[in-house]
């Protein structure tokens, strides 16, 4: 397997329709129970409690009656890094190789038994997608029996994050092996917990490299680098689709969709006048 992110390997990604998201938090709950995410008795301090999937509230900043709000669910963005070469902000800084970039799936791993808790990856991640286990997990009496055996529970002193429910990919691959077609995992066989739990179908998950997958059809990722910033690859050719902090060149695999311009504008920072110039520019025109 070569270190090439543009071959026919999978490139799993997600697009979240922010116009459909009601902020109900089902994705957060399903994620926590699917992935054995530990919790504390008092979860009011959001800066030391763990939520692989976190829903942020956005507002347009206007006062009544023009106030509008939107909710933005934020899993790990599974960044491809500058130029989409797999050097994600967190992967490149980990001193002990406890996190790596899977060139076969585009998924950023986190190995709990390898991590020694230096937290450099957390500093490097602009999305705050990485969480530290400040405490040992404590499950209420009897709840241990309900933990998923497919996801390894974590210990104190290490970092964890969303894995795109990788254990579901592993299960789907096993199934594909059994049915003799190991190279083609069906779209419906690998879906993350948050995707399946969302009551308004706001989340679409699949292979960004596969034109048959819904996520590809919505996002229409541009395989060529952005002519304005060669670090940016995979920009959506759908003008309603954006990524968070795309200009940093982190190349996330989580896309967001909204009809509302003010929502799209909150995806990144723009100097005065910049937004108006680029809001309608999406991807290289020759492939539009």
């Amino acid at each position: 397997m070569t270190q090439d992110n543009h071959n026919n390997a999978y490139k799993f990604g997600m697009v979240i329709d922010l116009d459909k998201c009601t902020g109900c938090g089902s994705c957060m709950v399903s994620c926590m129970s699917e992935n054995n995410v530990p919790f504390k008795e008092d979860e009011s301090n959001k800066r030391d409690s763990i939520t692989w999937m976190r829903v942020y509230k956005l507002t347009n900043g206007k006062s009544f009656p023009d106030t509008e709000i939107a909710y933005l669910p934020r899993p790990c963005q599974h960044c491809g890094g500058e130029g989409d070469h797999g050097h994600s902000p967190c992967v490149s800084v980990c001193p002990a190789t406890a996190t790596d970039y899977g060139y076969d799936t585009g998924i950023v791993s986190q190995i709990y038994t390898r991590c020694f808790g230096c937290r450099y990856c957390m500093g490097a991640c602009p999305y705050h997608a990485r969480y530290f286990n400040w405490w040992d997990p404590k499950w209420p009496e009897g709840m241990e029996k309900y933990l998923s055996p497919d996801v390894s529970p974590r210990m104190r002193g290490i970092v964890e994050k969303c894995s795109f429910c990788y254990h579901r990919y592993q299960a789907a691959r096993d199934k594909a092996y059994y049915h003799g077609d190991k190279d083609h995992i069906k779209e419906e066989d690998y879906q993350t917990a948050c995707t399946t739990a969302c009551p308004s179908n706001a989340i679409t998950f699949g292979d960004l490299n596969n034109p048959a997958h819904k996520v590809h059809q919505i996002v229409k990722p541009d395989p060529h680098p952005d002519p304005r910033n060669h670090h940016v690859v995979g920009k959506s050719r759908n003008p309603k689709v954006f990524r968070l902090l795309e200009r940093l060149g982190t190349n996330p695999k989580v896309y967001y969709l909204s009809e509302r311009e003010w929502v799209r504008k909150q995806g990144d920072h723009y100097l005065e006048g910049e937004w108006d110039k680029i809001k309608n520019h999406h991807g290289t025109t020759s492939h539009g």
Binding site: P95, A96, F116, G117, C118, N133, R156, G157, I158
Partner: peptide, 9 residues
């Protein structure tokens, strides 16, 4: 570091 015993990693 969160796991001092693994510092040698």
């Amino acid at each position: 570091i969160g796991q001092p015993l693994r510092g040698w990693f």
